[in-house]
């Protein structure tokens, strides 16, 4: 997958940040930017409008971000604007995060429950996960009542479903599989 556009940009930025020893800062800033773009879709759309000149776009960007982010990241934004790739930002930031986590032996795990986890359980969970994976666990909590109960863990491309819904489904499936 090294050839895709987001990968190319993300890998390049990663190299630079690595050289400058600014991986952590860059990661933080990228997350922040991703959130901003997420919450302001008109901004992203604006960056894609062909009638607005690149100069205009870069002016808008510097108006918002100059001096609010590191020079590296700011330059990076401008490069994206120059090439009309602002809309790839979420994918780029995701890919950067992947590499960052890999480099720092971090595993991001999303835990989905019907109610927020108590601190006790949260710690127990992260400890268990850390011991199982040998990595530092970053726990992302999600609330979803459709799972009915229990917990669903997602990390990387895998999923561990221990929800009540899954159990009911399994029951139903096992009944279905009985052929009279």
């Amino acid at each position: 997958m090294a050839g895709t556009l987001e990968n190319v940009y993300a890998d390049a930025l990663f190299e630079i940040a690595e050289e400058e020893n600014s991986l952590d800062i860059t990661m933080d800033e990228l997350s922040g930017l991703a959130e901003i773009f997420d919450g302001n879709p008109e901004l992203v759309k604006l960056m894609d409008v062909p009638t607005v000149s690149i100069q205009e776009k870069k002016k808008i960007l510097s108006g918002i971000f100059e001096n609010k982010v590191s020079q590296t990241v700011f330059n990076f934004l401008n490069v994206l604007a120059d090439n009309g790739r602002i809309r790839y930002f979420p994918a780029i930031s995701r890919r950067f995060r992947e590499k960052y986590n890999d480099r720092n032996n971090i595993l991001e795990v999303t835990a989905c429950t019907t109610q927020p986890l108590s601190d006790r359980l949260k710690n127990k969970l992260t400890d268990k996960l850390a011991s199982l994976s040998g990595k530092k666990i970053v726990l992302i909590e999600k609330i979803d009542s459709s799972i009915m109960g229990g917990i669903v863990l997602s990390y990387g491309n895998s999923r561990l479903d221990a929800s009540v819904r899954m159990r009911l489904e399994n029951m139903r499936r096992s009944i279905n599989s009985i052929i009279a």
Partner: peptide, 11 residues
């Protein structure tokens, strides 16, 4: 009960 379920899972 939900807590118990989740704890059981973690264990």
């Amino acid at each position: 009960d939900n807590e118990k379920l989740i704890e059981e899972f973690i264990n």
